[in-house]
Computed example of a mutant assay.
Amino acid sequence: MEAPRMTSAPAIELRSFTELDAVRGDLLDVYAEVRAPLLHLANYAVSSFGERLDRHGAEPGFQAVLAYEGEHPVGYAYGNRIEDGDRYWQRTNPAPSEKYTEHAAVALKEIGVRPAWRGTGVARRIHDALLASRDEPYVTLMVNEAAGDGKVHALYRSWGYEDIGHSQPSPASPRLTVMIRSTG
């Protein structure tokens, strides 16, 4: 049974984690519902996400912020610190400006909110909570421009992100747009 669609900002609690083990199960649970229509594609399979999550969770500066309604996780964002020369930047074409790579940046690797909580501001609250404790000057992310018929890309633009290039992180991945903004 589908949860009722929220019409106003739900009463949620944001929790921050720097150790993946404490929250891995909740991340996988929310991911599976968020990406349900795409799970049949190799790049979006829960097992593929779990492999990426384990790799990201072991990287420097890992942090996840999850939104909970009671003990029920409803959304998440996670990222880690990347330095000049990181494979993230190496796969970005054209190469990013030195102003973005001369200092470490936050790479927002995933953000997702269960369908019933979309459109309530939960994603923005999670995003902003993740950045609030970071000291890197920039945050970058990759987005599939086709996601949500372009609505996801437009949402990130409305949050202050700008396009700086493209990347294809793996052969199974779609071509993604690399976006960046200041963390402040």
Rank of each mutant, 00 (worst) to 15 (best):
M1C: 13
E2W: 13
A3W: 13
A3M: 13
P4C: 12
R5L: 15
A9Y: 14
A9N: 10
L14V: 09
R15S: 09
R15D: 04
E19A: 13
L20V: 11
L20I: 06
D21S: 15
A22W: 06
V23W: 00
V23G: 01
G25V: 06
G25T: 14
Y31M: 05
A32N: 04
L39N: 04
H40S: 15
L41Q: 15
A42V: 13
A42L: 11
N43H: 15
N43F: 15
N43P: 03
A45H: 05
S48N: 10
F49W: 07
E51S: 15
E51I: 12
R52G: 01
R52A: 08
L53P: 03
L53Y: 09
L53I: 09
D54V: 09
D54K: 11
R55A: 15
G57L: 04
A58H: 11
A58N: 10
G61D: 05
G61A: 08
G61L: 06
F62T: 01
Y68Q: 01
G70E: 01
G70V: 02
G70L: 02
H72R: 15
H72S: 12
P73L: 04
Y76M: 08
A77W: 00
Y78W: 08
E83W: 12
D84Q: 11
D86V: 05
D86H: 11
Y88V: 14
Y88E: 08
Q90K: 13
Q90D: 11
T92A: 14
T92M: 04
N93D: 14
A95M: 12
S97R: 15
E98Q: 15
K99W: 07
K99F: 09
K99V: 13
Y100Q: 03
E102Q: 13
A107N: 12
L108R: 03
E110L: 06
G112H: 08
P115D: 08
A116D: 13
G119I: 00
G119F: 06
T120D: 05
G121N: 05
I126L: 03
D128Y: 02
L130D: 02
L130E: 00
L131W: 00
A132Q: 14
S133F: 07
R134Y: 00
D135A: 10
Y138A: 01
T140S: 14
L141V: 01
M142H: 05
V143S: 02
E145K: 10
E145N: 07
E145A: 08
A146H: 11
A146Y: 04
A147S: 12
A147C: 07
D149S: 14
G150A: 04
L155C: 07
L155A: 13
Y156G: 02
Y156H: 09
R157L: 12
W159T: 00
E162W: 09
E162M: 10
G165K: 02
H166A: 13
H166D: 11
Q168S: 09
P169D: 04
P169F: 09
P171N: 11
A172W: 10
R175C: 05
L176Y: 08
T177P: 01
I180K: 00
I180W: 02
G184N: 14
